Amino acid sequence: MNSPSMISQKAYQHTITNGEAIGMKHGHPAIVIHPDSTVSKVWAKKPKLFSSSRFKPYAHRFVQNAKLLAERDVIVPTILDFQQVDGESIHVVRYKMLDGTSIRDLLATQPDQVNLERLAEYFYSLHEKGILFKAIHFGNVIQISDNHFGLIDFTSTKFFSGKIPLIRRAANLSTPLRYKEDTSKLQTSGVQEFIDLYLNCYNEREKDRQRLNKILNSLSPV
């Protein structure tokens, strides 16, 4: 599924009206949740001359990253369709929803159901696999069960041939901890506990653990 199939304007209108539209970007819904629990994610070309999407549309990145993440044993939605509106710079990717709840929603409603230890281990495993998920906030991480997590909205993801360097890990790890609507709902000392649990994943790599902790403290994410 490297290239999109072409659909008519009429078919596109049917897609975006057949379900609950959420968010608007450039006059188009950002996503549409359909009655069959599938999701259509829409990308419309930005109304400016120069954009990185001009050379590699975001929809292409989304589809490609889904494949690359799955190859590294990361749970992501199953892509069903990749389409482009005929004669328009509008792309649509339809996929199956992950069966779970975002960490953000769990923190808002059932914070005691968030398995912080497993979540920290999950972040660590992504970095060990060379995956830098740039949109790594708790709304984009789905808790499928106590021991499994999945990613959504992974358009901006960078893949390394080896493990993520410590300085990049620290910056990436501090990103979700800047969202006060999430961290404020963690239990008392939950943010520091999350960081400590991540650092504990280093086990015998004490020197790396100390270096990363020093970098995190210098960034002051919370």
Rank of each mutant, 00 (worst) to 15 (best):
105 D>G: 05
54 R>W: 13
82 F>K: 06
92 V>W: 09
99 D>P: 00
59 A>F: 03
52 S>P: 04
70 A>Q: 14
77 P>H: 08
107 L>K: 02
106 L>T: 05
95 Y>W: 00
70 A>H: 12
104 R>C: 11
79 I>G: 11
67 K>G: 02
103 I>S: 02
61 R>H: 06
76 V>P: 02
113 Q>V: 08
52 S>Q: 09
92 V>Y: 06
78 T>I: 10
57 P>E: 08
110 Q>I: 07
99 D>G: 06
72 R>P: 07
61 R>M: 06
72 R>N: 07
97 M>H: 03
112 D>Y: 08
74 V>C: 00
75 I>D: 08
88 E>V: 09
55 F>M: 14
67 K>R: 11
55 F>V: 09
73 D>H: 15
111 P>T: 04
113 Q>T: 10
61 R>C: 03
101 T>F: 01
82 F>L: 10
77 P>S: 05
97 M>T: 06
73 D>N: 15
93 V>L: 05
109 T>K: 15
91 H>Y: 14
68 L>M: 08
106 L>F: 01
80 L>Y: 01
72 R>M: 07
86 D>C: 04
56 K>P: 03
82 F>P: 03
63 V>G: 01
80 L>F: 03
82 F>Q: 10
74 V>N: 01
102 S>Q: 00
99 D>W: 03
91 H>I: 01
94 R>Y: 02
103 I>F: 01
112 D>I: 07
81 D>M: 08
86 D>T: 11
95 Y>T: 00
69 L>T: 02
116 L>F: 08
113 Q>M: 11
98 L>C: 05
95 Y>Q: 05
77 P>C: 07
116 L>N: 12
102 S>P: 03
63 V>Y: 00
55 F>N: 15
59 A>C: 04
101 T>R: 03
71 E>P: 15
81 D>F: 06
81 D>C: 06
70 A>N: 11
70 A>F: 08
67 K>L: 05
102 S>M: 01
108 A>L: 09
104 R>W: 11
111 P>D: 02
109 T>Q: 15
66 A>N: 09
74 V>R: 01
112 D>G: 13
111 P>C: 04
65 N>K: 14
101 T>S: 07
76 V>M: 03
57 P>A: 10
75 I>H: 11
77 P>A: 05
98 L>A: 02
99 D>L: 04
115 N>T: 10
112 D>F: 07
78 T>C: 08
54 R>I: 05
57 P>Y: 14
107 L>S: 03
70 A>T: 11
66 A>R: 04
60 H>G: 08
83 Q>F: 07
113 Q>W: 15
82 F>S: 14
72 R>C: 09
76 V>G: 00
92 V>T: 05
65 N>G: 15
63 V>I: 00
61 R>A: 00
96 K>R: 06
62 F>D: 10
113 Q>L: 12
53 S>F: 15
110 Q>H: 15
105 D>E: 14
76 V>T: 07
93 V>R: 02
